[in-house]
Design a binder for these strands. Sequence first.
DNA 1: GGCCCGCGTTTGACCGGTCAAACGACCGGG
DNA 2: CCCGGTCGTTTGACCGGTCAAACGCGGGCC
Lengths: 368, 368
Amino acid sequence: MTQRSVRHRAVTLRQVAARAAVSRQTVSNAINAPHRLEPGTLAKVIKAIDDLKYRPNRSARSLSTGSAGLIGYCIPQRSVGYANSMMDSFLHALSAAMEAVGRHVLLFTAPPGASGLAMYADLIAQQAVDAFVLSDTERDDPRHRWMSERDIRFVSFGRTWPKTGAEPGSWVDVDGAAACSTLVEGLYALGHGRIGFVGRSGRLGAAEDRRRGWRDACVRRGLPVARMSVACAGDTVAHGERAAHALLDRPDPPTAIMALSDVFALGVMRAVTQRGARPGIDVAVTGFDDTPLAAAVTPGLTSVRQPVAEIAATALRLLESPPGETEGVLLPATIISRASADINPANLSLPIYGSTPVVHPDRQENGT
Amino acid sequence: MTQRSVRHRAVTLRQVAARAAVSRQTVSNAINAPHRLEPGTLAKVIKAIDDLKYRPNRSARSLSTGSAGLIGYCIPQRSVGYANSMMDSFLHALSAAMEAVGRHVLLFTAPPGASGLAMYADLIAQQAVDAFVLSDTERDDPRHRWMSERDIRFVSFGRTWPKTGAEPGSWVDVDGAAACSTLVEGLYALGHGRIGFVGRSGRLGAAEDRRRGWRDACVRRGLPVARMSVACAGDTVAHGERAAHALLDRPDPPTAIMALSDVFALGVMRAVTQRGARPGIDVAVTGFDDTPLAAAVTPGLTSVRQPVAEIAATALRLLESPPGETEGVLLPATIISRASADINPANLSLPIYGSTPVVHPDRQENGT
DNA sequence: GGCCCGCGTTTGACCGGTCAAACGACCGGG
DNA sequence: CCCGGTCGTTTGACCGGTCAAACGCGGGCC
């Protein structure tokens, strides 16, 4: 009804060209290859662009160049009650990193496993995205092979775990094994001689990696690993709780329990409390991902923080590297030491996998 | 090096047309307006499409139609330690809903407040998105006015709170006031005569809405509201804890405390415990958002679940309704009753705002 | 039999950029 | 003086769809 309800067409490159009294291509060059223009012309064109507030049409550019300027990210359908604020902040970091180079993240959903590949295929066929960032990778993840066979560009957050020599694609990952072996070292230094592990069944690469770090460090220190680990089927506090009870019911129960996630760790702490013991005093407990839970519970939960911003930046770099050149990048995590297992960095011996820093955040978090 | 490293061009509409021995437009019609084709031709074209696995190029279509098929969603930069898994699952639901109609969600980041509007403006100028879904809306959110002035389509998750009569745009929201007033009713029925509220300072619409529901229900029942509420500045457990101590230190302390979020509620439970009282027995506690925290803590935290899938579906519907027709939809939340405040639906009187169902999920969550 | 109508199909133009080749001006060298 | 080369700019074609108008055809009606 008001006069502004008349839809004003967007400014096009030709209008800018007309105003600056140059050809279309000159305007295009002013944006994409300014060095080709004579300084005077460039200034003239830039002025016209600013005056008209011109912004190139993304669809037109995509059509012409053949690249959409978008990368696809599949939001996994998580079970209710699964607190993965890590993925939340990773998405933010990824989005921010993409923006810095003029690209964006396109979200989509797909069923896990091979059946979800149709969604990926469709987006590529429509040329809606240039590449994918994969997360929640599994061992021998079908997506990796599938994509490399079709020359679809991707970066995996999580190793591609090749059976053979050649990697099917680039990946970034966090050194969960190193973090877990450092945790074992820290607990060992605190005098723990039996360290349990609450893991996850299934094929998730990260889960297997962390368990390996725990196992190898225990073996190295001569600590028992047989009957010291449990694999949960689900991702809830209740699962972690039952797993901890199972461990603590055994003949020589562990005096420290490392959990694959903060949610599991919370279940472990509950189990310990139910048995009349005190987490952090009678039984040490550690988690993973440093979710808000970790800082919130009493006692504070020692956890492992993943460097989301670095992961995102690395993923972007790998995506932009020339196709065919696959590369894997392993980033160190950081152990956030709290009262549930007060790791002392000074007592750590040389790492077997890689170095993982340890910090004590308590002062800041409980302050104003 | 292998032969598949030869980039095969994507199938185009013209190739399909050639194969089916029809014109380009006929293929286009087969996809967009099949009813216009004679059944025989349609079958022929569809066969060609299937044979070649043709999928229309998204950029080309966008360029032609002028709509990108994408809606923008700004992922807010949350403070570390803020567990909003609600937003996580909302994004999943939104993405799934969009896909069902062939559209997608494009993520971006922007600083909060008016300074972030440049990002919105840029995406529209580039015609990268058709519309926006806004979340974390504030009272008199600058984005609403700004967008309606520019005829930018949007739906707000959170009321637009107009000062005048006309709404600047469509919105979906969850009836937080009704949920909170129902919580008050439930607590009143349990015998609580002084009910405190831990809220949030600032202009967040949802925070003000919930506080209003608490306040009005208390006034209606003749319960005190003066010196019964605290507004926290930050979103952490520590803030909630301090707020609870402040309430419990007062001359006539509350016997029940409602918190704006699960994180605050956890802080409240800690404060109660520190004072030697038992949450759920000596002091009732409720949270909001039904995050994994709520089911994880001991005792289980009574919380309020927002219907994310319905919110997403409604947002999509409002986006597709003709422009100019603004509409607001208020959806009921669900109270998830646990041991921290065992609300009994049978004892609730008639609601003052709207009806909010109450469920007891404990059996499922602690089971296998 | 001629006319009009509607249906199914085709044609040319267009969306708004980019690419590659052509163009003119200027400069230095033979 | 003419030629070759470089630089800055322009031109036409093209990316892969959709839109609107034009077209051919058969049927019903007068």
